[in-house]
Design a protein around this nucleic acid. Structure first.
Lengths: 256, 256
DNA sequence: TAGCATTTGTGCGTATGTATA
DNA sequence: TTATACATACGCACAAATGCT
């Protein structure tokens, strides 16, 4: 089962096996027994040396996925992930409401710079219009969950950074700028290995995965006011989309 | 800038640097110049040997992210990803409509087995009720995009596999079973390194990332009929959530 | 056209990490 | 624990292609 493709992939075998077991645990493969197969069995299954399996299990134990006890085996630890709702009313703090005791936004950096092509398009601004860039970290109960970059029209929201810094919330900051309500128009969701910078800010290990979302918020009149690109620690959060109970529009065909 | 944490992480330095550059490209960091810094500059930036940077660039070139030309430099190639809409009417084939010439579902395996706790809960069945499990690959223009597992009440949908195999579509198969319309209730989205099995089915390299979705479909009466867990090749697809133009419900606070 | 600086491509030697037996 | 094989990473040197003067 060890195909050659994996060898020069830049990802060590033990790491690949760890990812595999992690996925299997996540998929409920070992649901009935709350325990992993023996190291010998895993070594046979993955067709590798038992040392390699042990290295994988040690990594999973470091990450709190499993716990190995000599003579007993490797048991699976219960995993908890925060669920983050994506919808028209998506806002960070309250989205986590109930799941965590304290949600907070930390503001890292603010800068004004000419809009990139993508940002200008999203905010319906002329190319290279000055835009405000805000860098934030979203945390829950002291654990960083997301690292985000937000862009605003610098002309319209010049005072935003000061208001945000004071209130500790973008929603509150926008309120101080006259935006009493806003709505998320769309969210694009992707995923990728975490960059070094994001790993540092989110406290992730090499090889960790982030969920990437690019979203646009609009004011009451539907005018786009904010574009955001967020990176969520994928092992700490799931995004959830709940569809309103309406039926009937296009006709499509299939699955996923 | 090379912290020790990264060294024994099981992920090669060149791989981490490749992920970094990939993220930077995705974030539009090099938007203005459509070219990466020189290998020497990147080596200095990441504080590694130029060989290591070259290995990272070679990997990115293999993946079609960049192209390097001797004497000239490394240019960024325009990236194309299929966008997959998530909503109440989510269906595989037509969701990709227009973006690809031909979308197809391949059925790998069918089995009947007792429902796991999670599946039983999602389908509102008694624990260990027999359920039908369908394994599929979703492809567009010959490229595999998703690998999914679907569960149905085996009692109600005994004939589904035959109908699906014949029509090549779950939607059509359900129609033959009397389900003329259905609706997606909710989708949970996560991400993780691809498992070996998924890498094989989707043709991905080690270290590749998958977007994981767990969703439940219900019939006209709101009775859950299908639970699915899909794994999308994250570098080939983005999930898109578009919010209906309605305003006003809860009050929340923040960002992402 | 020739000359030059810049940038990528290649070769070799060495040290360390990873995986097997 | 030891030995062996291969992948990874570094450092240095030089060849080859490009772009500009």
């Amino acid at each position: 089962m060890v195909s050659e493709i994996e060898r020069r992939s830049g990802v060590a075998l033990w790491r690949q096996i760890a990812d595999d077991i992690r996925a299997a645990v996540g998929n409920g493969v070992y649901d009935s027994a709350q325990r992993l197969p023996t190291e010998a069995a895993l070594a046979a299954q993955f067709d590798v040396n038992r040392h390699t399996v042990r290295q994988a299990l040690a990594a999973l134990a470091r990450d709190g996925v499993v716990r190995t006890v000599q003579g007993r085996g490797t048991e699976i630890l219960p995993r908890t992930r925060v669920s983050y709702p994506i919808g028209a009313r998506t806002r960070f703090s309250a989205g986590l409401g109930g799941q965590v005791a304290k949600a907070a936004t930390r503001f890292l950096e603010t800068a004004t710079e000419p809009a990139s092509e993508e940002v200008a398009r999203a905010l319906a601004l002329a190319p290279a219009t000055p835009v405000l860039r805000l860098e934030t970290i979203g945390a829950a109960d002291g654990t960083a969950l997301s690292r985000a970059t937000h862009w605003f029209d610098a002309g319209r929201f010049a005072d935003l950074p000061a208001h945000c810094a004071q209130s500790g919330s973008i929603t509150e900051g926008l309120k101080a700028c006259g935006i009493t309500d806003y709505k998320r128009l769309a969210t694009e969701i992707s995923a990728a290995p975490a960059s070094r910078a994001d790993r540092k800010d989110l406290g992730l290990q090499a090889g960790a995965v982030v969920l990437l979302t690019t979203s646009v918020n609009a004011d009451r009149d539907g005018v786009p006011i904010q574009m955001s690109r967020s990176r969520f620690a994928a092992d700490r959060i799931t995004l959830s989309v709940r569809n309103a109970p309406e039926i009937g529009d296009g006709d499509e065909a299939g699955d996923g």
